[in-house]
Computed example of a mutant assay.
Amino acid sequence: MNITEQVTVNEWKEVTLTNDTGMSVSFLNYGGTITGINVPDQNGHVENVVLAYENYEDYIDDPNYLGALIGRVAGRVDRASFSINGEEYHLQENEGTNSLHGGEQGFHTKLWELSPFQEEDKVGVILTYDSPHLEGGYPGNLSIQVTYQLNNKNEFTISYSAKSDQDTALTLTNHSYFNLSGDAKRTIHDQTIQFDSNQFVELDANLIPTGKIESVQETPFDLREETLLRDKLGSTHPQMDLANLGFDHSFLFNHDKEESVVVKDGKSGRVMKLMTNQPAIVFYTGNNLMEDHKLASGPAKKHDGMCLETQASPASLHHEGFPDVRLKAGELYEKYTTFSFEAL
């Protein structure tokens, strides 16, 4: 196992974690952006299973948030405002009148401090950033540690730890686009997915939660059994239609199974299992990827990748009954998501 580092454009650092089985994970200190998760297929052929830009400069002003750490609040905050303890806070409006993924200067734009570590059975890096009071409009001085860790079981874990000196709002995630075909040779249509989830969140025309939590029963959102994405993408269901004929929805986890999500690609034999202590996930199927963004694999295409954004729900700032993003002063925020890879 080892850790290597190189300098890229703009004097950014790119770190690569490599285990003893041939898997590696690469990421930038800029935005904590994951540029590569390289895993073997059923024939031992190692390829990248996340989308990455050919030119790293494209990460600077990236509407797709490719591979980035997202915060302070992942997702859309309705009307770019919320109240805590009777005081209203106004955020940057960067998607219509709403605030998306922490605003234009969210955590995806920050240079994170890196502290590598290596143990007998794992390697990793601790990324740290201190977000000052009212950065992005959010209250509280917030100290954050995010750990990227790879072990010899081909498990890549992202752990999040944070503490604020004032009551605030926080839910962190990673915005990698997964495609298990390897190097995005094919779209995600012929990959299967399975969620441990009975409920999804209804959206309005602006992709803001309406406040309703719906059953997946007898809808395209029923992914409780292994489901071929080709059978769902392009559905004329009203909720799929407003998301540009795909998923861009939050699912609430049952947490009845160890794996909250299982993704498979039959042709390569790759399987990815996701374990997390997060209460929910935003499942986004790359509905708005455009060819004017040049990926390492070629021009981007609709449905080239899927995002599995484990998080709580920004809807909790305006509606009851949703997984809460509020963090009390002095309370420790501790979340993790593990992506485990194997081959059939």
Rank of each mutant, 00 (worst) to 15 (best):
F82G: 04
F82C: 03
S83G: 10
S83D: 12
I84L: 12
I84D: 03
N85S: 12
N85R: 10
N85Y: 00
G86Y: 03
G86I: 05
E87M: 04
E87K: 11
E87A: 09
E88V: 02
E88L: 00
E88S: 08
E88N: 11
E88A: 03
Y89S: 01
Y89E: 00
Y89K: 02
Y89R: 01
Y89V: 00
Y89A: 01
Y89L: 00
H90P: 00
H90S: 11
L91P: 02
L91K: 00
L91I: 01
L91W: 00
Q92H: 12
Q92G: 11
Q92N: 11
E93V: 00
E93N: 08
N94P: 12
N94M: 08
N94G: 10
N94A: 07
N94K: 05
E95R: 06
E95Y: 06
E95T: 05
E95D: 14
E95M: 08
E95N: 13
E95V: 05
G96V: 01
G96I: 06
G96C: 02
T97Q: 14
T97W: 02
T97N: 12
T97A: 14
N98A: 01
N98M: 01
N98W: 01
S99I: 00
S99G: 07
S99F: 00
S99Y: 05
S99E: 02
S99C: 14
S99N: 15
L100C: 03
L100F: 06
L100M: 09
L100P: 03
L100Q: 07
H101V: 04
H101Y: 09
G102K: 06
G102D: 10
G102W: 05
G102F: 06
G103P: 03
E104C: 09
E104M: 07
E104Y: 07
Q105G: 11
Q105W: 09
Q105P: 02
Q105D: 15
G106F: 05
G106T: 09
G106R: 09
G106Y: 07
F107G: 04
F107C: 11
F107M: 15
H108Y: 14
H108L: 10
H108W: 14
H108M: 11
H108P: 04
H108A: 12
T109K: 15
T109L: 11
T109A: 15
T109Q: 15
T109I: 06
K110I: 08
L111D: 08
L111H: 13
L111T: 13
L111F: 14
L111K: 12
W112G: 08
W112C: 06
W112N: 11
E113R: 12
E113D: 15
E113M: 11
L114A: 13
L114Y: 05
L114G: 02
L114T: 15
S115W: 09
S115N: 13
S115D: 13
S115K: 15
P116I: 05
P116M: 03
P116H: 10
P116C: 05
P116K: 04
P116S: 09
P116Q: 06
F117C: 04
F117S: 07
F117M: 05
F117I: 06
F117N: 05
F117K: 02
F117L: 07
F117Q: 03
F117D: 09
F117W: 13
Q118W: 01
Q118A: 14
Q118E: 15
Q118M: 13
E119G: 07
E119W: 10
E119A: 10
E119C: 02
E119P: 04
E119V: 00
E119D: 12
E120F: 10
E120N: 11
E120R: 12
E120P: 06
